[in-house]
């Protein structure tokens, strides 16, 4: 199974997501990347992340994304 970092790397190959604690502030993830990421996470883990949870705070860094996945019953 791909890790969150692997999935992010596919979306934005030019960045190393393991070194940032704030993807948006560091210019690594814009709102459309977030949409692409959600679609990929939904497909990879067979879930549907709630639209109400698609907010920048939940996609700030690897830990917040992992927490969102746990909320959806996935142990990343």
């Amino acid at each position: 199974m791909k890790t969150i970092a692997d999935i992010l790397k596919e979306i934005r190959p030019e960045f190393d997501f393991t070194t940032s604690t704030d993807f948006k502030a560091d210019g690594m993830l814009d709102s459309f990347d977030m949409v692409t990421l959600v679609a990929t996470l939904d497909k990879t883990y067979g879930i549907s992340i709630s639209g109400a949870d698609i907010v920048p705070e939940n996609f700030q860094n690897l830990e917040t994304i992992a927490a969102l996945l746990r909320k959806n019953g996935v142990q990343p």
């Binding site: 814009d30 709102s31 459309f32 709630s50 639209g51 109400a52 920048p56």
Partner: peptide, 25 residues
Amino acid sequence: VGDNNLRAKDHLRMDGSAVFNFVQI
């Protein structure tokens, strides 16, 4: 206006994230 988008004040402006969350909630 960010994310490499170019827009004038004469143009339609949409705060995509705000609209998305508004609809979902």
